[in-house]
Write a protein that binds this DNA or RNA. Structure first.
Lengths: 159, 159
DNA sequence: CAAAGATATATTGCGCGCAATTGATTTGCG
DNA sequence: CGCAAATCAATTGCGCGCAATATATCTTTG
């Protein structure tokens, strides 16, 4: 008998909640935001704002578009979010002088100062997930791979 | 040297987007809903409505609370969602005669008829994720485990 | 049986995600 | 150059998630 690629079964029973990889992903993602919420709240950040700040701590003075590409979010999500971050004083929004279509986002001192307490939060989360380094990385890589596959398969006619 | 549990590192570089398991989970979950959207749209369902229907196809005539427990959602999310499902004619909402606090959700014929086309959608998704049965199940189980760990760790003083 | 507490759903308010559209700016092409 | 197409951000509209609160109903307890 030849070794064969076993594709997940598609019989009738498979349409159960417990069989759904999508639901496991969905539920785990929401569990993460629930877990983060009380930790980020004292810092005045939501989970989505937190991942935007991660981008800025890595690369300051980026455009809205660049943030969107890294986070897979669009301007409809980012514009109001960034305005809230600006209102709370952690970032500054400014039209690019060279290309006035773009808006560049830069950290304020208050924004830079948030990095240390957020690092502490992140330590809590790492402990909270209760995984070894290897399992942590393996799971992360599988999910990144899955996202990429889904997004590529999702574009119609990907020639 | 003793074998030791390797906890994920917490040095300064770890606070990068690419190191974040939470972001990988978050992004994969949104990729799933993006992938599902054009497939479910012709059936008049959103992704969230889809997972509610999964519950109902497994167990008809359940209370809002039971749906919430299975999906980790509360009444603030479910009540308006179920009203929309009722408005589109796929479910019926009715106060329980024995306990008037409860609202029981049951499928209409139109709701039962949706099961077949949704099974077809699910086949598309299974192919879209491009995983073998084993990888699919393993990833699903790890995510379920992760969700459980996060939710348990999240409750303060879990005595 | 009445009051107190527990339970189930509904409502309100806020912050996302995202599709679709708009407006401003820049680029590309004849 | 001049105008059409492309690009970027903002806006609008809708459907979640979820905390906090409100309301109605049931249960428990004295």
């Amino acid at each position: 008998m030849l070794p064969q690629e076993t594709v997940p079964t598609c019989d009738d029973d498979s349409l159960q909640l417990s069989s759904q990889l999508c639901f496991a992903t969905y539920a785990a993602a929401h569990a993460f935001t629930r877990f983060y919420k009380p930790l980020l709240e004292p810092l005045g950040l939501t989970y989505s704002q937190y991942i935007v700040m991660l981008v800025l701590w890595e690369t300051d003075n980026v455009t809205v578009k660049e943030i969107g590409q890294r986070l897979f979010l669009d301007s409809g999500t980012l514009t109001p979010l960034l305005k809230r971050l600006e209102a709370s004083g952690v970032v500054q929004r400014k039209r690019d002088a060279q290309d006035e279509r773009q808006v560049r986002i830069s950290l304020t001192q208050k924004g830079r100062d948030l990095r240390a307490p957020v690092t502490a939060v992140w330590r809590d989360v790492v402990c909270g997930v209760g995984l070894t380094q290897d399992d942590f990385d393996a799971l992360k890589n599988q999910l990144n791979q899955l996202r990429q596959t889904l997004d590529r398969a999702g574009r119609r006619d990907p020639r």
